[in-house]
C-alpha cells in the first residue's frame, strides 16, 4: 500500500452564501504527479489555498504527510513547498537575496542557503539576473524564481497553482524538468492547471472539480475507461475529451460576430 501524502475529509469552504468547495475527499499517494483540473470558478484555487494554509476551511480536515494541517501548521509547512497563484515574492529583493532569504526562513544555515541559491539560479537559467530586483523580472522569470523558492528547502510535497500560466515554452521546459526530477527523487506534486496538454503529459493522476465538487479522480487510464464518447473512432481519449465530457459546457457556435 502506497504511502498517503495528502488526504482531505469532507473539506468545505464557503464565502457567505457561495459554496466554493463542497465535501471534497481527496487522496494523493507518494510520488504521484496529481493534476487538479476544473473550469474557471470551479474551486481549484480555493482548494489549493486551503491545502497550503493560505485559507482556512469552513469545515473538514486536511492531513499532509500524516499530520493535521490545522493543529500542526508549522510542522506541515516546513515540509511542503508552494507556488501560489500570486507567486508571493518579495519583489524588492534581488533573485539571489530572495532565495537566500527563503532558504533561511526554512531553517537552512547561511552556507547551505547560499550554496542552494547558486545551484537553483544556475538550474533555472537565472544566473545573469541574480542581482536584479525581482520586480524587474519578466513573468516567466518570476515563475521560475517562485518554483526555486518552493524547492530550496527540499520539501516532500509541492503544491503548484497554475505553474504554466503565462510562461513561454523555454521556461515551461525548465519547470517540467525540475518537477520530473523532483518526482523521481521521491517527491509528490499536486498542481492545478488549465493547460490540459501539459497535464496529460506530466501527470500520473488527475482530479476534476466542478462547481466545488470532485466529479472524477484517478489515473488517466481509469478516467478513460470511465468515459464513453458517442461516435468516437476508438483511439485513446485525450484529456481534453475526457474533461469536456465530464464537466460539459461545449457550446454551439451562434451566429454572433457575423462580421468576422
Amino acid at each position: 500500500m502506497a504511502e498517503i501524502i495528502l488526504e482531505t475529509t469532507s473539506l468545505r469552504r464557503t464565502f457567505g452564501p457561495l459554496v466554493a468547495v463542497d465535501d471534497l475527499n481527496l487522496t494523493v499517494e507518494k510520488q504521484q504527479f496529481y493534476g487538479f483540473l476544473g473550469p474557471n470558478g470551479a474551486g481549484k484555487s480555493t482548494t489549493i489555498k486551503m491545502l497550503t494554509g493560505l485559507l482556512r476551511p469552513t469545515s473538514g480536515s486536511i492531513r499532509i504527510l500524516g499530520v493535521d494541517l490545522e493543529k500542526n501548521s508549522v510542522a506541515v509547512k516546513s515540509r511542503i513547498g508552494v507556488v501560489p497563484e500570486g507567486l508571493a515574492l518579495f519583489e524588492r529583493l534581488t533573485g539571489a537575496q530572495l532565495l537566500n532569504f527563503v532558504g533561511r526562513m526554512y531553517g537552512l544555515d547561511r552556507d547551505t542557503a547560499a550554496t542552494r541559491t547558486a545551484e537553483l539560479l544556475e538550474f533555472m537559467d537565472l544566473k545573469d539576473s541574480a542581482d536584479k530586483m525581482v520586480a524587474d523580472y519578466s513573468h516567466g522569470m518570476k515563475k521560475k524564481t517562485a518554483l526555486a523558492a518552493a524547492v530550496i528547502h527540499g520539501p516532500a510535497v509541492l503544491f503548484l497553482d497554475e505553474p504554466f500560466e503565462g510562461v513561454d515554452a523555454i521556461a515551461a521546459t525548465t519547470l517540467k524538468r525540475l518537477l520530473q526530477r523532483f518526482i523521481s527523487h521521491g517527491g509528490t506534486v499536486f498542481l492545478t492547471s488549465h493547460v490540459l496538454e501539459v497535464v496529460e503529459r506530466l501527470c500520473t493522476h488527475i482530479g476534476i472539480i466542478r462547481q466545488g465538487r470532485l466529479v472524477a479522480s484517478g489515473s488517466l487510464e481509469e478516467l478513460r475507461t470511465g468515459v464513453k464518447v458517442a461516435g468516437h473512432d476508438g483511439s485513446p481519449l485525450t484529456l481534453e475529451e475526457i474533461f469536456l465530457q465530464i464537466v460539459g459546457g461545449q457550446k454551439q457556435d451562434a451566429e454572433v460576430i457575423s462580421w468576422l
Binding site: T52, G53, L54, V74, A75, K77, S78, V82, P84, G86, L87, A88, L89, F90, E91, R92, V102, M105, Y106, G107, A149
Partner: peptide
C-alpha cells in the same frame, strides 16, 4: 504594506 504579494510568503513559511 511594502510586502504586497509577498505577504502570502509569511503565511506559507514555517513560522507563526
Amino acid at each position: 504594506g511594502m510586502d504586497r504579494d509577498g505577504f502570502a510568503r509569511w503565511l506559507l513559511s514555517p513560522m507563526s
